[in-house]
């Protein structure tokens, strides 16, 4: 027996082509994916542990300060990385990026005329602990306009990138905030199958809220699980 990874659950994933999100129209693959039998190439993957982190990487309220503090509502975002069998995934790199409190990204291509924050970059990373837990301290990102359709606004979100234990488990996603009225109008969020959209929304948690400092939000990730496959 050899260990491989359960297939992507396509019923929980957005389609490549989702015409309401206009950029998919010319960028979505049109031909069916060709199934691959997992080999070492797919069950291995890049390994980045605690040694790859800088000291302040997980604290976005401090990792780019230039003599002041970032503007906005401080938040803690924490949770666990699990596989679909509920097994915690320790020592996994998580990378995040986000807009500042005014809805502006540091990226030079972002032309939204909201102010940049000299004390905020919006990028961070951490590695999960032995129970698969992670924790970021950051600023709650603002909503921002984009050109998809007339008066289009992205709901506040944080981008997450995870490798998981193998190339097969790679995941890039976005975490949203509870009760955001923009969600129902957002074709990226709405491109997710209806019964899985809630999986992208964080929960406000008083127990993660740090008194007199930051509100706490919880968000768990579920990656593809391992399975036993007979060797042919």
């Amino acid at each position: 027996m050899t260990e491989t990874y359960a297939p992507r659950d396509w019923s929980s994933q957005p389609p490549y082509l989702h015409p309401d999100y206009k950029s998919t129209v010319l960028r979505a693959p049109t031909k069916p994916l060709i199934p691959i039998r997992q080999s070492l190439s797919e069950i291995t993957g890049p390994v980045y542990g605690h040694e790859s982190l800088g000291k302040l990487d997980a604290d976005l309220t401090r990792n780019a300060i230039k003599g002041g503090e970032p503007i906005g509502e401080r938040i803690v975002v924490t949770g666990r990385v699990l596989d679909e069998n509920g097994r915690p995934q320790p020592n996994m790199l998580i990378e995040i990026w986000q807009a500042n409190a005014a809805g502006r990204y540091v990226h030079v291509v972002d032309q939204h005329p909201a102010p940049l924050d000299p004390n905020f970059l919006g990028g961070g990373r951490c590695v999960t602990d032995s129970e698969g837990r992670y924790k970021f301290t950051t600023i709650k990102p603002g909503a921002y306009p984009w050109g998809n359709h007339e008066n289009a606004w992205r709901p506040a979100h944080i981008h997450f990138s995870l490798f998981g234990p193998s190339l097969s488990t790679r995941l890039v996603t976005q975490m949203y905030f509870p009760g955001d009225p923009l969600l129902a109008f957002d074709p990226i969020y709405m491109g997710t199958p209806a019964d899985c959209r809630e999986l992208l929304i964080s929960r406000f948690m008083l127990e993660h809220t740090q008194p007199s400092f930051a509100l706490g939000y919880e968000f768990d990730f579920v990656l593809r699980g391992r399975r036993q496959t007979p060797v042919e």
């Binding site: 929980s12 990226h107 990138s161 997710t192 999986l199």
Partner: peptide
């Protein structure tokens, strides 16, 4: 019962300063 796999979302246009 298995947990549902977290849905993917686009990397978007602004990944560069972090990734």
């Amino acid at each position: 019962s298995k947990l549902r796999q977290t849905p993917s979302q686009t990397v978007g246009p602004f990944f560069a300063y972090a990734l």
